[in-house]
Design a protein around this nucleic acid. Structure first.
Lengths: 330, 330
DNA sequence: TATCAATGTGTAACCGTTTACACACATAGT
DNA sequence: ACTATGTGTGTAAACGGTTACACATTGATA
């Protein structure tokens, strides 16, 4: 493995000139360029990015911290972030935290030691102090899917309450006369906000009762069991809003087993807009622009890394009602 | 950001002693340990891994090259590889190549420049020469889901032909009297082998005709259209083996639309064993131990990095028939 | 002709670690 | 008393780049 000094020797110019040539910085004559190029090719020289990073203080590496890449929401984020990262000349480190604060802390330490240029975090469990620890080391952070208002932390997030309201409102407009809600984990702000949105839309209806809100854990099986529980308590529900698409899928599975036809007897709507093109009937949902979120996160992060000022700290993103067969009017 | 020299100064010992302490190498007295620890804490010192890598020739970073993390097969691989990597003290870089040779080449160059310790590759398009390029730079490679026999390349793979045969055989045993096959892209060895397995099982049947094999592109919509085409040509098929689970899902969607009941009128089996717990009826499949594949890849890679000899070059993994509702006997 | 800017190049310090080597001292074995 | 071995520490040279600074040459301008 040859070094810049080997190239320097072979080409008969100083290492500084080679470096200038490689980085297109400063002046290099035509002749020098040619001899350098020839030497590089002859030696199959590849600049060592480790050394570059040490001297230049930039690793061209960013990290993406997610709870679990197996949750279909995150591959889409990862894909978007990676596409943007690659376009901007960064490489993407993937970290799964499983909502585990120890793992989070541990990863953050490792990433600080690696002197990554920036980090995108999606986490329900992380505490602002940990973000400040990163900022103390001059590592820019963008948080997605979880906003702390009134902090200096840059975040990209959607209005879950408005989205929840939109979902419930849609079912009302479809003519549903009793709408249940499968709620995500209470300690997750997004889940709670979506539930509040549901309440905004439904709590004044004469049929409303709190037992229409059942608990799921954002997973398919959570949605499945929640749906059975809901149907047990209220066999007359004719619409259900699940706090995310995975639970909606679980609910539809339960309904299928119960012989309840969708959308004739029951309309279903989810939340997130993850890719579920294999589904039949296709699921209505409140779609977040997942790809855009990942892409924007990377874009803002890049600006922070380049020390360009950002306009705002908090970037709200709009959600969109997608009507599909699962809630289509007869 | 303090350095080892700052710690050295504050603790009143040489940098060598600090380094020995940090790496638990060589002798360090109890007293030295204590003063060092105190100094580290006081300065909030974090060892710079870039410098470490430069001096030590190890980056503790490995890369995972996949076609597309959005394909549900790969998050499972990524999760497994990342779990194992993290356990072994590595960090995982994620790269999407989209089956695009240019992107592959580009990533490989970048990764060489970053002096990653090793790389796991899943690609249908990559050429052995590119792997040799990595090996020339002393970067160990493990290839998954694609074996080149008679080469020095370490690979983990399954016997797709046997798996395809198993799938078709299963449908025969279920009493199917005319079985179609939705085949993946011809240029992908795995797809072709699965098709050959199907032929092994079915080509001697009196009902067999080549037009029972239709083409899909390993995607949901590919499977959907292939199923419609197949049903068009042969409305009397009562069993279909799709070359992967995504196409099986697309096929089931098409069948649902066509009003064909599964499994009564048509039995369906897929291939891969990706997570599809939201599906109803649940899909039968030839399951690859996806998690194990990712985990083993990382394990073997670690051994290669540590220069421990590997027993073999080619690690064959067994697949398993999973019978679910989509092919259950009446 | 003197002055200046633009072009082109080289020397050497620096980035923050690891580690080979030298050295000092204690303890134990002969 | 002499060696060998184990323990503990420090100096300084790597690792492979970047870049500040000094210096030389050229051509244009006053």
């Amino acid at each position: 493995m040859s070094t810049i000094r080997d190239v320097s020797k072979l080409a008969g110019v100083s290492v500084a000139t080679i470096s200038r040539f490689l980085n297109q910085s400063g002046y290099v004559s035509k002749e020098a360029e040619e001899t350098i190029l020839a030497a590089i090719q002859k030696l199959n020289y590849k600049p060592n990015n480790i050394a570059r990073s040490l001297a230049g203080k930039k690793t061209s590496t960013i990290a993406l911290l997610v709870p679990d890449i197996l949750n279909p929401f995150f591959p889409e984020i990862a894909r978007a972030a990676e596409d943007a990262a690659s376009r901007l000349g960064y490489t993407l480190i993937l970290c799964n935290t499983d909502h585990n604060p120890d793992k989070e802390r541990n990863y953050i330490d490792v990433l600080i030691n690696k002197r990554i240029d920036g980090i995108i975090i999606s986490s329900y469990t992380i505490r602002p102090e940990q973000i400040y620890a990163l900022e103390a080391e001059n590592i820019p952070v963008v948080v997605i899917d979880n906003a702390w208002h009134d902090t200096s932390i840059v975040s990209i997030s959607t209005d879950n309450r408005a989205g929840g309201q939109m979902a419930a409102q849609h079912l009302l407009e479809c003519g549903c006369r009793k709408i249940g809600h499968i709620c995500g984990p209470y300690h997750i702000a997004a889940a709670k906000d979506r539930m509040l949105g549901y309440e905004d839309a439904c709590s004044q209806q004469e049929w409303f009762t709190p037992s229409l809100m059942v608990y799921g854990d954002f997973s398919v099986s959570g949605g499945y069991h929640a749906m059975r529980e809901l149907y047990d308590k209220h066999p007359d529900v004719d619409g259900v809003f699940a706090g995310n698409d995975l639970m909606a899928a679980g609910a539809m599975k339960a309904l299928h087993e119960l012989g309840v036809r969708i959308p004739d007897q029951m309309k279903v709507i989810g939340y997130d807009g993850i890719q579920m093109d294999m589904f039949s009937p296709a699921l209505s949902t409140i779609a977040q622009p997942i790809y855009s979120i990942g892409e924007l996160a990377m874009t803002y992060l890049d600006q922070m890394i380049k020390e360009k000022p950002l306009e705002k700290k908090s970037y709200p993103i709009d959600v969109q009602l997608i009507v599909n067969a699962s809630s289509r009017l007869p």
